[in-house]
């Protein structure tokens, strides 16, 4: 556990020693603002809630979250530090969890920095702050699931650009799994249980469920199992690919 914390601390400060952290946060806040106020018609709706803000999160994350996860393992493999890192007296699970938690915590910091939206909406009216809190939790859980997918992809390649593109494609499919874009591929020939199952795997479906204000156990379990499954795969892939 202490090792997880040590690795977590190194990784998290690693984000802030490069411009990545600042660029990421600025772009994230700017895009969130533009989408909420201009595309989401925040003011014209005349409702005191943050729904237009949260509605864009899945699509914003599809583009931005891979930028956080791409470096996790690809950079270690590219620079050779993985050989140093994995010959330290640590367990693979500690390494995987420490890195993931750092990225997840960073995503949490970026989310927390959107607090001016929350202040604005509270200033303008009386929103249901319970729903807003639930939505933040949903957003953070979804970010975690996407980061786990990204960490896993980052373990397969030395090239961060490839890690970014592949992760973006994968999390897009996961996000859109319930939509006609993805389901259309399966409809007509695949058995109904399969199409149904794929629709159930959608990030968007589970995300929207929580943003309605009810944290259902099933949605929670869904995101946590995605995280655990991909981190497990991550550990196996690092072990397989580390020496290449």
């Amino acid at each position: 556990m202490r090792n997880v914390l040590t690795i977590f601390r190194r990784e998290l400060t690693g984000y802030f020693t490069t411009p990545l952290a600042y660029v990421f946060i600025v772009i994230f806040l700017a895009l969130a603002g533009i989408l909420t106020f201009f595309v989401g018609n925040f003011f014209e709706r005349g409702q005191a809630d943050l729904q237009p803000f949260f509605n864009f999160h899945p699509w914003l994350f599809v583009v931005l979250i891979p930028a956080l996860s791409m470096r996790l393992w690809a950079e270690e493999r590219k620079s050779g530090t993985i050989e140093l890192f994995l010959t330290l007296p640590i367990r693979m699970t500690e390494a995987v969890i420490g890195k993931f938690l750092a990225a997840w915590c960073f995503a949490g910091i970026a989310l927390a920095l959107t607090f001016p939206f929350w202040i604005t909406v509270n200033f303008l009216g009386q929103p249901d702050n319970g729903v807003i809190l639930a939505s933040y939790i949903a957003s953070w859980l979804m970010a975690g699931a996407m980061l786990a997918v990204g960490a896993c992809v980052s373990a397969i390649t030395k090239n961060q650009v490839i890690a970014f593109v592949v992760t973006a494609a994968l999390v897009f499919v996961f996000t859109a799994a319930g939509s006609s874009i993805v389901l259309g591929v399966f409809e007509g020939w695949a058995p109904e249980w399969l199409t149904h199952g794929i629709a159930q795997m959608s990030f968007l479906g589970h995300f929207s469920a929580i943003t309605r204000g009810v944290i259902d156990m099933r949605d929670l379990v869904y995101f946590l199992s995605i995280i655990i499954a991909f981190l497990g795969a991550n550990a196996i892939l690092v072990d397989l690919k580390k020496a290449e």
């Binding site: 690693g14 620079s79 050779g80 050989e83």
Partner: peptide
């Protein structure tokens, strides 16, 4: 064990 891998890799930003 104290290990110096080939090329002495270290985290460049640190």
């Amino acid at each position: 064990i104290g290990y110096l891998p080939e090329g002495a890799p270290a985290y460049p930003d640190m």
